[in-house]
Amino acid sequence: MTEHTTRYLLFTSDTCTPCAKAKPVVQQAAEERGLLVQEVNLQKSPELFAEYDVRGVPALLGFDLDAEIGRKVGGLDAKAVRDLFDQGEAL
């Protein structure tokens, strides 16, 4: 059996109200599935926003073997987050 290499990045900003609302939704969905989501903050890592071509926040990106498998941008409700996690689990 091969080990999954799916990883998730949550792009946020300190000045983004929807980001503050999305964080606990993403964290709870990730914990329920035993997934790790790394947060990338615009104020601390602006170069990663450019590298991953993130133009809006909050943004949740999924990767498998460094290839992007999905992206959700804007208001991240529980369904949108679960849908992206489902994409990763289907690999």
Rank of each mutant, 00 (worst) to 15 (best):
R7W: 08
A20H: 15
C19R: 08
K21F: 00
C19T: 03
T2K: 15
A90Q: 14
P58M: 05
Y52H: 12
Q28M: 03
G62D: 06
L42Y: 13
G62C: 04
Y52M: 03
A29M: 11
L91F: 09
A20F: 10
L42N: 12
A67L: 14
K79I: 09
V25K: 14
R71T: 05
K21I: 00
R7E: 12
K44M: 06
T17Q: 15
A20K: 15
K23D: 00
Q87M: 09
Y52Q: 09
L65Y: 11
L9M: 05
L76N: 07
E47H: 02
A29V: 09
E39P: 05
K44P: 01
V54M: 06
L48K: 14
D83G: 02
T5W: 08
D64N: 14
V40H: 07
F11Y: 12
K23V: 10
A67E: 15
T17D: 13
T17W: 11
V26E: 11
V73K: 12
C19P: 06
Q27S: 06
A50P: 04
G75H: 15
D83M: 06
T2I: 12
Y8T: 03
F63S: 02
A90L: 13
V54S: 02
G56H: 10
I69N: 06
G88Y: 05
L76K: 09
R71Q: 11
G74L: 05
Q43W: 03
T15N: 13
L48Q: 15
G74S: 06
L61F: 01
L76H: 06
G34M: 05
L65I: 03
G62N: 08
A30S: 03
L91P: 03
R7P: 03
Q87N: 02
V54N: 07
F49V: 04
L36C: 00
G74N: 09
P18A: 00
A59Q: 08
K44H: 08
V57Q: 11
F63Q: 05
L65E: 15
L84G: 02
A22Y: 05
K72D: 01
M1A: 10
E47I: 01
T17A: 11
F11R: 12
F11C: 02
K21C: 00
V81E: 11
A22W: 07
A30Q: 06
F85T: 13
L10K: 05
C19K: 07
D86Y: 00
G74R: 11
V37N: 06
Q28K: 14
F85N: 14
R82A: 04
K72H: 07
A30E: 07
R82H: 11
D14A: 09
F63H: 04
A50L: 13
K21V: 00
L91I: 11
A67I: 10
L91K: 12
A50N: 13
K23R: 15
P58C: 02
K72V: 06
E89W: 01
P24C: 02
E3N: 13
V25F: 00
R82I: 00
E51N: 04
L76E: 09
E47N: 03
L65S: 14
K79F: 09
L84W: 04
Q38Y: 04
T17L: 14
H4Y: 07
F85C: 13
L35V: 03
T12H: 04
D86L: 06
K23Q: 10
